[in-house]
């Protein structure tokens, strides 16, 4: 189990943002977090990454309390791709991806051959090897998203947390990235925030639905992405259309 969460409550400043969440995520595969804007998805992801300490309750990663890990140890087990990340001007893709090796570097020592190999492997996995020496800001939106994903891949942790990896991408780029994310889920545990429920239905092995900092549903997509739980999560009705011969349902707001 990558994450086991028991009765987790979290405050930001004086506001309680997450209220008594309990869930366990399956080992390997892709977990999607869904819910309306401001429901605490990003806060939950930052908490899973060990960046926000829970007010009460417990958070375990692979059987160990996340709070008991050293910073470096935590970084070697759990990688986070936040939306707030900034690519400094002039940085090349390879330099950006190499930042992912930080928890493996020895202080004041340059990267080893193993580090270089991990960076090359990550670039290869996202298909950016031909663009490795280009500046990050010169890339298209889809390529840039791949560069950030390569950074967390170079971190070589078994668990990846991705905050809206499909945001701001046109449909062909989304489709390409979904294929890539599916491959990542075959060898790692991936937790990501998603807005597109049809993609969630087809990509995820497990779905968490949040509303106002409370867990509405946690389970396989066939259970969570149905009209009942979705109505409870988003406050509106949904049509879940099952097309013959395809993976999951097409999920659309009712009456759209």
């Amino acid at each position: 189990m990558p994450f086991a969460v028991q009765d987790l409550t979290l405050r930001l400043g004086r506001t309680e943002v997450l209220h008594g969440l309990s869930f366990a995520l399956p080992q390997g595969g892709i977990t999607g977090i869904i819910g309306p804007n401001g429901c605490g998805k990003t806060t939950l992801l930052r908490c899973l990454a060990g960046l926000l300490p829970p007010e009460s309750g417990s958070l375990h990663h692979a059987g160990q309390p996340v709070a008991s890990l050293t910073h470096r140890d935590r970084a070697r087990r759990i990688a986070l791709m936040p939306q707030s990340a900034i690519a400094p001007p002039g940085l090349t893709v390879r330099q950006l991806v190499a930042r992912g090796r930080t928890p493996w570097l020895r202080p004041f020592r340059p990267m080893t051959r193993a580090d270089e190999a991990a960076v090359a492997g990550a670039l290869d996995e996202v298909g950016l090897t031909p663009l490795a020496d280009r500046a990050v800001e010169s890339l298209s939106g889809g390529q840039r998203q791949r560069a950030w994903i390569a950074l967390v891949l170079a971190q070589a942790s078994g668990t990846l947390l991705l905050d809206e990896p499909l945001n701001f991408l046109d449909l062909p780029h989304q489709a390409g990235l979904v294929q890539m994310l599916r491959r990542l889920g075959e060898s790692r545990s991936v937790v990501m925030i998603l807005h597109d429920l049809t993609i969630a239905a087809r990509l995820c092995d497990h779905v968490l639905a949040l509303r106002d900092g409370r867990l509405v549903a946690s389970g396989p997509p066939s259970d969570v992405l149905a009209d009942g739980p979705l109505r409870e999560t988003f406050g509106i009705g949904f049509d879940c259309l099952h097309l013959p011969g395809s993976g999951g349902p097409v999920v659309l707001p009712a009456g759209l």
């Binding site: 960046l51 986070l80 936040p82 707030s84 990340a85 930080t102 928890p103």
Partner: peptide, 8 residues
């Protein structure tokens, strides 16, 4: 956030 998740 990214710096912290890299262990800093």
């Amino acid at each position: 956030d990214l710096a912290r998740s890299l262990g800093l």
